[in-house]
Computed example of a mutant assay.
Amino acid sequence: MSTSTSSPIEQHPDIMEMHARSERATTGVVGQAAEALGVLCGVYLAASPWIVGFSDLTALATSNLITGVALALLMGVFGNPYERTHAMSWAAFCIGVWTIVAPWAVTGAVDTTRTITSNVIVGAVACLMALGLALRGVIGIRRL
């Protein structure tokens, strides 16, 4: 019977330093502003069918409600700083892309400009915010 004195991989100095660098990169003012923007995008996306006035398009309204809540929770609640820069930002990017294509994918044809405009703008902002977080995490890790 042998006892191992090695620490688990999570306690490895290189892993600890990588987590610390990532945390420094994502807890700055820009990272926090991007997260706040992501939460606001999610809340707006969830409420947009009633704000913009397309709640009668039930499938699209449901899609926006679900993806909006998911985006707000993703950006505001889940994850620690290391995951936030990687998996969470790419998931937020996918939600943004879905938001852009949802008016056509869910309803087939949308006849209101305000519906398309709302979804395209909030989807593009979500995509840019997610890319900014992902790139900031990568650049911050390399630079620090």
Rank of each mutant, 00 (worst) to 15 (best):
M1G: 14
S2A: 15
T3L: 14
S7Q: 14
P8L: 06
I9C: 02
E10L: 10
E10N: 08
Q11G: 07
P13F: 03
P13L: 03
M16I: 11
E17D: 14
M18C: 08
H19V: 14
H19Y: 13
A20Q: 15
R21T: 11
S22K: 11
A25W: 05
V30R: 09
V30W: 11
V30E: 03
V30M: 10
Q32A: 00
A33E: 00
A33Y: 01
A33L: 13
A34H: 04
A34Y: 08
L37D: 05
V39Y: 08
C41A: 10
G42S: 05
G42V: 03
A46L: 05
S48D: 08
P49A: 13
W50L: 13
I51W: 11
I51M: 13
L60S: 06
S63P: 00
S63H: 14
L65G: 11
L65R: 13
L65F: 15
T67H: 12
G68M: 10
G68C: 10
V69M: 05
A72D: 04
L73I: 11
L74F: 04
L74T: 02
L74P: 04
M75I: 00
G76Q: 12
G76R: 11
V77M: 10
G79A: 06
G79H: 06
Y82A: 14
R84G: 01
T85M: 11
H86K: 08
A87D: 05
M88C: 01
M88N: 14
S89D: 03
A92Y: 07
A92S: 15
F93V: 07
F93M: 14
C94W: 14
C94M: 15
G96R: 07
V97P: 05
V97Q: 02
V101M: 09
A102Q: 12
P103W: 00
W104H: 04
T107M: 06
G108A: 04
V110Y: 04
D111L: 10
T113Q: 10
R114G: 03
T115I: 05
I116A: 13
I116T: 14
T117D: 13
N119A: 10
I121C: 04
V122E: 04
G123A: 07
G123N: 02
A124V: 07
V125K: 03
V125W: 01
A126G: 08
C127Q: 07
L128G: 01
M129G: 00
L131G: 09
G132A: 12
A134E: 01
L135R: 06
R136S: 10
G137T: 06
V138F: 06
G140A: 06
I141R: 15
R142P: 02
R143D: 01
L144N: 09
